[in-house]
Nucleic acid binder design. Structure first.
Lengths: 219, 219, 219, 219
DNA sequence: AATGAATGAGAGTTCATTCAT
DNA sequence: TATGAATGAACTCTCATTCAT
């Protein structure tokens, strides 16, 4: 199974039947926000968030430095936006590719694979998340909400597996935390320290091990 | 099982028969180096290495800023020293606490627990590792050697388990990579995003899941 | 004979038919560059370039220290700009005031006087030239070219004097080097160690001595 | 004529018949002062005085940095000592090599040659003199006295030449200032900007020009 | 006397942010 | 809205000098 991660938000060009000035301006504004975010994402592939300067972002996004502040309150808010956009996409894809799966085993498989897709698309994710100054900004609440949403989606999958007698019995919350931590943790570490190749045999071995570990009886 | 991580390098007291000035000065100097390293470790609990200033370190270690430069060439050299000291300790402890175990299952359990002990002692480890400028410094070669050493130790444990018919068959290298990534990854992620409590039930569930996944037949 | 040294580069006012924003900004920018250069020149009257700090320059030019870096890459680049501007002016004036003279004796007189004018206007010239880190910057090539140009101008004067049977016979290159070294050297030393008064009798005595020394027969 | 500039002050080793502790200690102290001065002179061949650090001097002279302050009040005092030692030697040599000459023309020749010898031995002289902070230190008075002494020596030579009807008539002070400025100035400039080769034909041409310029009638 | 250690003061430079147009 | 310009605050690192032994 291979996903292609598409940007679900970006509005590039779209015809609108009705000439509503206000809406068009709004849309253009959003487009410019997006291009700044994209520039930032590019730069995050190259260096630390802390070491990226507003000049870098301005240069890459073809805006004047001062203009960036018309779209984002400050550097940190920009980072949060970058991050939450990715989480939104991730949540949507979990719904589409995993929750829709009738078979809980397959759903879990897909979920772990999905995390891999993301790490390939945004390899700087763990690095940036690791150093993110999560506490200081209120927009972060939205980010936390997205984390919770994701957790609920995984929990739903697991519950279905337990109800169906396929997964082992365990406190649902504990089970969910464990699966997410194991999945995301493995993916982060493996791709950072060993290989980001989606075909690496370690990945399949990890998935099998986890599946075997959480299913009742033999697979 | 609980480990207590001791500093394996620090020279606190040493007997010396004769008042050899030179040697005493040398030791005092080392003590001061240590206290700077310790101040840095403390600060790493609180913020990014990049965001820690030499003023911070000076303040915390009760030296004047300029004095730090008598002990470390620059900020990066200081970080490398901090980091490699920890890796040395980790390697030593793996040998002592895991490799010495006759039972492979227990050895693997101990290893994952050990990673937890470290994350509690040095919670900033993953964060710092994630942003470390690994390429630019030659001392880094030593770190890589330590990583390899660690891998060999884990491989030895796994091989014993396979030879003894306890662990599933799989390419040794793949198996080792998988175990390390799963273990370290889970530990990093769980303690960063969820809880660093050693008693969290998720930890036991993770360990059990992995053990069940890699052992033949029923547990 | 008295010269008034005018700044040949500075753009103070310029007519421009149409309100071209871009051009105006460009000009304003240049004006600000000039005022930083001028502040630096002032300070060079008071102390070594090495001992002048960016804070000094900022203070004197009424900019914030950080602003200076919008106009010059660093302290050295600023010095080079200061320096090459002066050399350009000097070359231009030699052409105007000396080469244009029909009488070689008068031309040489004027040249030595000209060096005096410069030393009065930029007394720090020799001092700065003496400590300038000439090797490290590529713009320095331009300076060397100017030095060569000046030498050619003086050589032309001397050759005319030799052809006309007025100056003694001697290798043209040797003669030129001697005249420049004697002239500039005397001027530098005398004004630094004794007096920078243009009316000092030593100056006339020096000029007479040199003229007598290089002319055939009696003057 | 070629001089060899010898260090006239340095006491290296000397046997003393009588065991006067005090005097020996004094001598040893002086020896150490000398070796610091010598280290500084070496370094001045390599870089600006301002850019030479006390660490450099300590390293080169094989003292601990703090020890230097036992011999010199501060960096500037050290420089003044370096300088005045050279001037002392110069004054002595003028006496020996020039003032002793019966022929005033030959004496002037020797003097200019002597300046060349010095510039070869201490090429950094003009550079350092150019940037020296002459005003702030009282030891500088001694330096000025030496300058005056030198001037008197040259004046004596010139006066003899005038009395003997060999040199042109002119105010003695003006004449002396002119000769010193022309001589030292030429030497400084020529050796800095063109060549420090003692055999360069420009040197002989300069000397001849000056001699011709200041002598009555034909040479 | 000699020196290892310590340091206040300051250097040049950078950068997120704001101002003025 | 867009942006060139301006800047305060902070950074790492250096150095002449002093202290304590």
């Amino acid at each position: 199974m291979t996903f292609t991660i598409r940007n679900g938000n970006k509005i590039n060009k779209q015809e609108y039947g009705d000439g509503e000035m206000r809406a068009r301006l709004e849309r253009e504004r959003e487009t410019r926000r997006e291009s700044i975010i994209e520039a930032t994402e590019q730069l995050l592939n190259e260096k630390t968030f802390e070491s990226i300067t507003m000049d870098d972002i301005a240069m890459r996004s073809d805006f004047a430095k001062a203009s960036i502040y018309q779209y984002f309150k400050n550097k940190e808010e920009l980072l949060i936006k970058v991050f939450s956009r990715i989480l939104e996409i991730k949540c949507r894809l979990i719904k589409e590719k995993c929750l829709s799966q009738a078979d809980p085993v397959q759903a879990i498989r897909n979920y772990i694979r999905l995390e891999f897709e993301f790490i390939r698309r945004y390899p700087w994710g763990p690095r940036v998340a690791a150093t993110f100054p999560f506490i200081d900004y209120q927009e972060v609440n939205y980010l936390f909400a997205l984390y919770e949403q994701k957790k609920k989606l995984i929990a739903a999958i697991i519950q279905r597996g337990q109800t169906g007698g396929i997964f082992v019995k365990a406190d649902l919350d504990v089970f969910t935390n464990m699966i997410i931590s194991a999945g995301v943790g493995f993916v982060n570490y493996f791709s950072t320290h060993m290989s980001s190749d989606l075909q690496s045999p370690e990945i399949e071995m990890f998935i099998s091990t986890i599946i075997k570990g959480i299913t009742k009886g033999e697979q």
